[in-house]
């Protein structure tokens, strides 16, 4: 049981973050994803991470797209060798983040990538950190970890797989989600050669 308890604690600790810092981290990832030569998002994507603050409250949200609709990945615009590595015909990235600004706390994270495979069947991956105080869904911290990832044709298709997710910040979750759809070196934020170099004793 202890490892699951530890994971739950780590997920709780992850929530401590400054919203502006977290948003700027996401913007930097979006910028990388929208810059040529390997752009998978339309230009100026960082600008479309929309901040919304509830007046006279500490709540602030960030959504990709004003209507929370997210952004289509421009898979067909990728160079040919990269296109071959992509198993989806189309995909859409949504980012929903809500914070308590004064408490510097991530209240909710919802990063989803849904798409259509080449055989026209649906496919979705979604990383959820439920609202603060409401993250004990399901039966326990193993079967329904606080920060978890759904993978399947749709989010509610059975069996409902909820993979426990490591305590990564929103920007890294976005990086990860895109790396699953475009599994090429250009979209790998931590390529092994660099990891190995950093693992070398100094």
């Amino acid at each position: 049981m202890n490892p699951w308890l530890d994971l739950y604690r780590q997920h709780g600790a992850l929530r401590a973050m400054n919203d502006r810092e977290a948003a700027n981290e996401v913007r930097r990832v979006l910028r990388k994803l929208s810059e040529k030569p390997y752009a998978v998002l339309r230009g100026d994507a960082p600008a479309r991470l929309v901040e919304g603050r509830v007046p006279r409250s500490d709540t602030v949200q960030y959504t990709l797209g004003r209507e929370r609709e997210g952004e289509a990945l421009e898979l067909e615009d990728l160079p040919f060798p990269l296109q071959e590595a992509v198993a989806l015909r189309s995909a859409r990235l949504a980012v929903l983040l809500r914070f308590n600004r004064r408490a510097e706390r991530l209240q909710e994270m919802n990063i989803m990538l849904s798409g259509v495979r080449r055989d026209a069947s649906p496919w979705a991956v979604a990383v959820h950190l439920p609202p603060d105080g409401q993250d004990r869904d399901g039966l326990g911290a193993c079967g329904h970890a606080a920060l978890h990832c759904h993978i399947g044709p749709t989010l509610d298709a059975k069996p409902k797989v909820r993979v426990p997710f490591p305590p990564l910040r929103p920007a890294q979750v976005v990086e990860w989600a895109v790396s699953q759809v475009v599994p090429t070196a250009e979209f790998e934020p931590a390529p092994w050669p660099r990891v190995e170099a950093m693992l070398q004793p100094t």
Partner: peptide, 22 residues
């Protein structure tokens, strides 16, 4: 939604997020 009576679809997750902000 909180009673688990609505489908856990992407559309509803997004709507729940919006509702909780408001």
């Amino acid at each position: 939604w909180r009673a688990g009576q609505l489908p856990r679809s992407q559309e509803n997750y997004t709507r729940a997020f919006w509702a909780m902000t408001l």
